[in-house]
Amino acid sequence: MEVLDIIKPENQVFCKSQLMTGNALSYCPGCGHGTANNLIMEVIDEMGISEDTIGVAPVGCSVLAYDFMNIDMTQAAHGRAPAVATAIVRTWPEKYVFTYQGDGDLAAIGTAETIHACNRGENMVIFFINNGIYGMTGGQMAPTTLEGMKSSTSPYGREIATMGSPLKITELIANLPGVYSVSRHALHTHKHVRKARIAIKQAFENTRLKKGLSFIEILSNCNSGWKMTPNEANEWMVENMFPYFPLGDIKVAGKLKV
């Protein structure tokens, strides 16, 4: 096949998991949510656990996840996904259960549910998509919004004196004894996608082995909320979010990484 032929639509190969429904995604073009959705479905498909997996999505950009992920899904009220997931885990302990939450949902509206589910060590996986903003509801400041970062509710930038510091909730959660593994990843390059995939597979393996709660944070851009192009948003994420929210393992097999 000639190189020019590869770009023809009929010859293109799309790396889409068979567990993605094929419905048009509701996420903004350039957002990391679509990649995250597909990656989770890839791992579930590879592990052959699609019939035994239940996902929980609350209010936020992931609210229509059931339209995209071809597995059993249920919704939860804003911030309450860990509570709903706890009920599922307690009812069907043989299932693989995960929540898929944004930073405004998990780290603000659902702080209590998140902290207590983690502290109890519920046998589930929590996926935390951190784009530093309330993406779906108008671009308001979130707990993870960086100092000086502008949003619809902090138009002059986040001011620490009156608004507090950005919350490193992932590090906070890592210190809870019920949490078995914690890591932070990004999806803006092939290398980072591969690392995130390994972590996702290990998290579901932890569920199989009844190790308790696995927590995976994924840093993502929000080019529409940040008022940038996708490329600009990725560059901004690397230059500004990575130093404050460093990538890598934070807790492995119940032990904090020093």
Rank of each mutant, 00 (worst) to 15 (best):
P58W: 08
P58T: 04
P58S: 10
V59L: 15
V59I: 14
G60H: 03
C61T: 02
C61S: 05
S62P: 07
V63I: 14
L64F: 14
L64D: 15
Y66W: 14
Y66P: 10
D67A: 14
I71S: 05
D72V: 11
T74A: 07
T74H: 09
Q75H: 13
A76H: 03
A77T: 11
H78W: 02
G79S: 03
R80W: 02
R80Y: 13
R80N: 15
A83W: 06
V84F: 05
V84K: 07
T86D: 12
A87D: 10
V89I: 13
V89F: 09
V89D: 11
R90V: 14
T91C: 10
W92T: 13
P93C: 01
E94R: 06
V97F: 06
T99V: 09
Y100S: 00
Y100P: 01
Y100H: 09
Q101Y: 07
G102L: 07
D103A: 01
D103H: 03
G104Q: 06
A108V: 03
I109D: 06
G110F: 07
G110Y: 06
T111L: 14
A112V: 15
H116M: 15
N119L: 03
N119R: 14
N119S: 08
G121E: 04
E122H: 09
E122V: 09
N123G: 00
I126Y: 03
I126K: 05
F127E: 05
F127D: 03
F127R: 02
F127L: 08
F128D: 08
F128P: 02
F128H: 12
I129D: 09
N130S: 01
N130I: 08
G132H: 01
G132I: 05
G132E: 12
G132W: 08
G132Q: 09
I133D: 04
I133V: 11
G135E: 14
T137W: 07
T137A: 00
T137S: 13
G138R: 02
G138A: 09
G138Q: 06
Q140V: 00
P143S: 00
T144W: 11
T145Y: 02
G148S: 03
M149Q: 12
K150G: 13
K150W: 04
S151Y: 01
S152K: 00
S152M: 01
T153D: 01
P155Y: 02
P155K: 04
G157E: 06
R158H: 00
R158I: 01
E159S: 15
A161Q: 15
A161F: 15
T162K: 14
M163W: 05
M163G: 03
G164R: 02
G164Y: 11
L167V: 14
L167S: 10
